[in-house]
């Protein structure tokens, strides 16, 4: 699934966000929290890991960031 959060057309600068086996595309310059919301996910249910480090929701996405969202919900 692709979510072109931020802009309608995919720019060559768009950044990939990996969440489970899905991938989203976002633009650099927005906060990770708004990127998570624009991708239709709940910030409460994921932890953003940028370049291997846990970051807070106000982190501004930079070009060349490697972004992974770790799901925190477990069930059963």
């Amino acid at each position: 699934m692709t979510c072109h959060a931020g802009r309608d057309t995919l720019s060559p600068m768009s950044i990939k966000i990996v969440y489970r086996d899905e991938e989203f595309e976002v633009e650099p310059g927005m906060t990770i929290r708004s990127a998570v919301l624009k991708c239709g996910l709940l910030p409460e249910a994921v932890l953003p890991v940028v370049n291997g480090k846990l970051v807070t929701g106000d982190y501004i996405i930079q070009e060349a960031d490697a972004i992974k969202l770790v799901s925190v919900i477990s069930g059963g």
Binding site: L42, P43, E44, A45, I73, S74, G75, G76
Partner: peptide, 22 residues
Amino acid sequence: ECPYSVDANSIYYKEILNRLET
């Protein structure tokens, strides 16, 4: 997750609570 937990009620309730929490 355990493959049998996929449609567990608990996950559904957690999602609802997380919507409120957001």
